[in-house]
């Protein structure tokens, strides 16, 4: 184990995974919130777009989305997120696809959170003259976020682990380094152990954090 850590820059690779996960998480939260608002809006077309998004991206394997971003979007359509550097292009596409894919799950987590908010809260918000947007922003979403911290946490942890899928397009950082190490050193148990421990170090504290936050921030009724 020691020689893997000294011969390869495992830390840098995990730092790449962390960056990828942070970008993906940020994007997924933004996208998921937007899509949730669409699905909850009173406008039919918006609801329709929202459910189309969720059904499409939740049901498409992440590997396909990753491959599509490079084969379909970069090579066929010429959509490059970095024209100079293929690796950076792959990394950025990986972040985008992680965000797009997990955004669908964040949306559903938020919607389940909205269901924990009694209908009377929205009515009271409308009754004092808040617009749809204002009651979303000040009354519904803050409570929905608190009610959905646990499922949002699970989605983020899944996102971190799913970032390894980006290895298929070379944007997988830790996962890509693992393939390289296995190629050079053979598939020894210690190789898996190093990377498995790396991911546990990333996700275990997060899991504990989200559990305690969801308890601390729960809205008391």
């Amino acid at each position: 184990m020691g020689e893997i850590l000294s011969n390869y820059d495992v830390l840098a690779a995990f730092w790449g995974t962390i960056k990828l996960s942070l970008l993906g998480t940020f994007g997924a939260l933004v996208l998921g919130t937007i899509v949730a608002v669409l699905r909850l809006s009173p406008v039919r077309v918006f609801q329709w777009i929202g459910s189309w998004y969720v059904n499409t991206f939740r049901n498409t394997p992440l590997t396909l989305l990753m491959v599509f971003s490079i084969l379909g979007l970069t090579f066929i359509l010429g959509l490059q997120l970095n024209t100079q550097d293929l690796n950076s292009n792959a990394f950025r596409w990986a972040a985008v696809m992680l965000a797009v894919y997990h955004g669908a799950f964040i949306c559903e987590a938020l919607r389940s959170g909205v269901n924990t908010v009694p209908a009377g809260q929205a009515e009271a918000a409308r009754a004092i003259g808040l617009t749809f947007g204002q009651s979303m922003q000040h009354v519904l979403l803050p409570q929905a976020f608190r009610g959905s911290i646990a499922p949002i946490g699970s989605t983020i942890i899944a996102l971190i682990k799913n970032s390894t899928v980006a290895a298929v397009i070379g944007g997988g950082e830790a996962a890509n380094l693992m393939s390289t190490v296995i190629e050079n050193e053979g598939s020894r148990f210690s190789v898996f152990l190093v990377f498995a421990i790396g991911f546990v170090i990333l996700t275990l504290p997060l899991g504990l954090f989200f559990t305690s936050m969801s308890r601390r921030l729960a809205v008391k009724r």
Partner: peptide
């Protein structure tokens, strides 16, 4: 609606 106050049976304070 801002000009029409409403008080509900179940209070509906923002929790």
């Amino acid at each position: 609606r801002a000009d029409v106050g409403m008080v509900f049976q179940s209070f509906n304070l923002f929790a």
